[in-house]
Design a binder for these strands. Structure first.
Lengths: 123, 123
DNA sequence: CCTTGACTTAGAGCGCACTCTAAGTCGTAT
DNA sequence: ATACGACTTAGAGTGCGCTCTAAGTCAAGG
């Protein structure tokens, strides 16, 4: 029994607003979702899985247009595996670099916090 | 010999465009910078230090309006140390949480990378 | 004297990623 | 029959953080 959700339920499950889900589809981040007889979207497990992954890509700072490129590679089928790999590896490097930079910035912020803490202790 | 830089030099040194430096000042992230006789800004070491730190705050995702709040606390003087500390500690918690989430998302992305790698190896 | 170039201001414009609105279509409950 | 509520579309609006433009001032060099 494959689950199929309405857009409202897909929104609840994914944490993405139904407005944003339609926007993602229009923008080509998601393949056109199946419709029921009255033209309403029905989200299947595969759609939800796609949404989950694209949400991770977005949450790690991948811009919309690059997620779209990734979606286009998926649409092109199995011969695009190498390109998908390259895209994800490039993104991985960017995320790792961003993590390192943030960690470094955090050090400085913590140094400042300690500075204020010591000031407080001395009145 | 205290250095005082033109806005163009401050931009080069800080990596923030001169447009953005003026914007930061207008927006209250920076105290009004000293001017020379002809009204041009002259950036001192203290200004550059402030710019460096605010850049770290921005780079770690602190919104403009919260950097402004921090700047206002500095303007209020020494009696705002406790509030500055609280603001920075709250930000620290947010950054740590963000780092953890990003690391988790990175795991999933790397899982996907390995998935494609194995697919590639098997042709 | 005049041009050049770096600065000044106020304010318009831009790219991103949604977010919301208006007007319309369904299926169901009263 | 009709009202309700969830959906549909196209397209307008929003918030953020700059980024750029236009028009003007000023000091120095040719």
């Amino acid at each position: 029994m494959a689950t199929t959700l309405t857009i409202a339920d897909a929104a609840r499950v994914s944490g993405i607003s139904s407005h944003a889900l339609r926007y993602y589809e229009r923008a080509g981040l998601l393949d056109p979702v199946d419709r029921n007889e009255s033209g309403h979207r029905r989200y299947g497990d595969d759609d939800l899985e796609r949404i989950r992954f694209l949400t991770k890509l977005r949450a790690t700072g991948m811009p919309i247009r690059e997620v779209r490129r990734y979606a286009e590679l998926i649409k092109r089928g199995a011969d695009s595996h190498a390109e998908r790999l390259a895209l994800l590896e490039a993104h991985r490097r960017a995320v790792v670099a961003q993590l390192e930079e943030t960690a470094k910035n955090l050090d400085l912020i913590e140094w400042k916090i300690n500075f204020y803490r010591e000031r407080m202790e001395q009145g």
